[in-house]
Amino acid sequence: MKTLHLAAYAAVLSMLAAAPVGADEPGPGGSRPPVAKTGADVYRMYCQACHMADAKGAVGAAAFPPLADNPRMGTTAYAIYVIQEGKGGMPPFKAMLSRDQTAAVVAYLRTHFGNSYAEPVTATDVPP
């Protein structure tokens, strides 16, 4: 503590100026979620809240589209684009998922849930 440099605590003070929340948010909690390692992890932790565990989507007042048996999974670039940029009510995941994670989940979707597009997907396919 005694060796803490002036600049170090100046930085701490600047962080006190946290970004305004502007919504009824949980607050500062929840900042350390587990890290999804595989495509299956990413799907389970980020996608299935809306697209469901079986990837068949759901219908309520509107619909979450199915990713199962979905010919659009044949176009890697399309899946990557929608994940990164979002679509309608779906949030953009560019800031939440790394390029590796994005590639892994697209590869997973292309080879599961009745989709069978064997061509691999790598982080280099994902725009930075």
């Binding site: 929840g30 979620p33 932790m45 980020y46 299935q48 809240a49």
Partner: peptide
């Protein structure tokens, strides 16, 4: 729990 962001997505799924 009051989860949002990644935690909300994970718990929500």
């Amino acid at each position: 729990a009051f989860a949002n962001g990644p935690g909300g997505l994970h718990l929500g799924g």
